[in-house]
Design a binder for these strands. Structure first.
Lengths: 325, 325
DNA sequence: TTGTAAGCGTTATCAC
DNA sequence: GTGATAACGCTTACAA
């Protein structure tokens, strides 16, 4: 592949001059400019960004760590992040931790070695120490790993409240809440707090089921829901902590001969596209995924520029009423 | 951030020695090795991969261009690609073309400037010329852009045949096929060829609807299906070219008061996870997404090593019978 | 077993 | 207006 030297040679000028026309810096005569451009596309020249990065100490690459892009929430988030990153001239390095702490740590080290300009963590392993040594800007989703690391989340308590209030107001008398692993110190746990509060205030019967969120195991979700409906046939409301779980709840209800929303009402969480693939469409709590992505890139690029940013970034949620509750 | 010089200084050796310790090359005494390691983690040293890449002329980065990772097929494909890339020591740069030719071309140039080791194209714009100048290995999904560029696809004709035969054998007498834009020269169009052949052989009434696949517009899918069911209330079979379209078909059928599979039978394509979120679960043609990802990384890494690879890579498909047909 | 120095492809600094 | 040259952080002959 052609280098700046080849271009200089062909154009009969020095590399400095070539560099100048590329970057539009300093004065250059029209004549040289034309010569250089001619040489450049004659050679199909593309400047080597690696060399530039080395010199500039900036890679213009952002690392994104998620449990798995195959999960709709993260795939939509990744999509928005890429969108805004591109607008600001950043590239996105995709890392799936598969919720494996070893892989996650490994990826963090890789990102450090590759001198990425910033890291976005959508993954939840507990190893906090690894971030300590981290010099580059970092932000997390839905997790406060340290006092000084900015995080993005939505108003989880409000989301939980909205969902539960809806279920109660629609007449549910026994509500199941299916949530992730509460041991993991996620901000998403506030949804469960709200669920407890609302349900107790209204004196509504309820139960809380923790899924082992360490794996996105569809078969497990299915089994869990099935068992739940068998063990508690009188459940008339389900508040799931993701639309995917909500979808399985819907499917298992119908399989069990229960009508939704007549017999059982269901509310999901996230409002991913898939919520509208179901019939009836899923009532859910909408997280502003687009805003998440936009803010993530913004927080990082501001830090790159040396600005300080807000640590707590909680975005509003919204109850989206559709066909299941 | 610490450099190799800092480590050398602290350990009281030369940079060469540090490099040797890092890469396990040549002979080094146990004593120096220990000293160097000590210095390294005292400084939290991480070798600069950018400098390495520059020297080695290998970035160990693979570029992945897809229309949008938010689409389940591509999100699952990206997940598998990342999985296998990681195993081989490659990183993945995520590029969403949004099916915008400008952005796609822009990304290709960007990837060239960043000297990625290979490019995987899951996007479908028509600009072929841009690949001409491409020196780095490249592979495409479901598209043959040039005689000498390897592609990965599944047996699309067989998939179309399997789906249509199933519909016919289940008693469908008027089948709608919803496919992408047939102008785009995609291998996926073979599904439509098969549909035509089978349906004609059996003398079954049919119609073919092209969606403008240039956008993943859910509202459009919805409208299209709704209009179809109104215009042709006697349709009793639908073969959709993706599970997502299949999901919308299912939803619109139920909305129109038609029972699935009793009144209308539906078959999707891809077998993404979402196919099993619906109720009834979607009967579909399974594409081996995991194998796609594995093969993609393999083809690229082999080319990096200088091996030549198979140009045509068509993987087998499979009819997965579930609840809709 | 270890060190010196050149070079990877750029850009910034300073001359001319 | 343009050109040498040093540097970015690393690896690799080639010496010692």
């Amino acid at each position: 592949m052609a280098t700046i030297h080849d271009v200089a040679l062909k154009a009969g000028v020095s590399v400095t001059t070539v560099s100048r026309v590329m970057n539009n810096r300093g004065y250059i005569s029209e004549a040289t400019r034309t010569k250089v451009y001619a040489a450049m596309d004659e050679l199909g020249y593309q400047p080597n960004e690696i060399a530039r990065s080395l010199l500039r100490k900036q890679s213009n690459i952002l690392g994104l760590i998620v449990p798995s892009v195959s999960h709709p929430f993260f795939s939509e988030l990744a999509d928005r992040i890429e969108y805004y990153a591109y607008q600001k001239g950043y590239k996105v390095l995709l890392c799936n931790s598969q919720l494996d702490p070893v892989k996650e740590r490994d990826y963090i080290e890789m990102l450090k070695r590759n001198r990425v300009d910033g890291i976005m963590m959508g993954s939840h392993t507990l190893e906090v120490d690894d971030f300590m040594s981290l010099r580059s800007p970092i932000i997390t989703f839905d997790r406060q790993i340290r006092e000084d690391i900015p995080y993005i989340s939505s108003d989880n308590y409000e989301g939980g409240r909205l969902a539960t209030e809806r279920l109660v107001s629609q007449g549910c008398r026994k509500i199941a809440h299916i949530c992730g692993n509460l041991q993991l110190d996620l901000l998403a746990n506030r949804r469960t707090d709200a669920f407890r509060d609302v349900v107790q205030r209204h004196g509504v019967a309820h139960l809380i089921i923790q899924t082992d969120m360490n794996v996105f195991d569809q078969a497990r979700y299915e089994q869990l829901l099935r068992e739940l409906l068998v063990a508690h046939p009188d459940i008339d409301g389900i508040f799931a902590t993701s639309d995917i779980i909500g979808a399985f709840a819907l499917k298992e209800c119908e399989l069990a001969g229960k009508r939704v929303p007549e017999d059982v009402k269901i509310i999901g969480y996230d409002d991913v596209n898939a919520a509208r693939w179901l019939s009836p469409e899923l009532t859910t709590i909408r997280q502003p995924i687009d805003d998440f992505g936009k803010l993530a890139v913004e927080l990082l690029s501001k830090q790159v520029e040396g600005e300080t940013v807000e640590i707590r970034n909680a975005l509003p949620v919204e109850l989206v009423i559709r066909g299941t509750a």
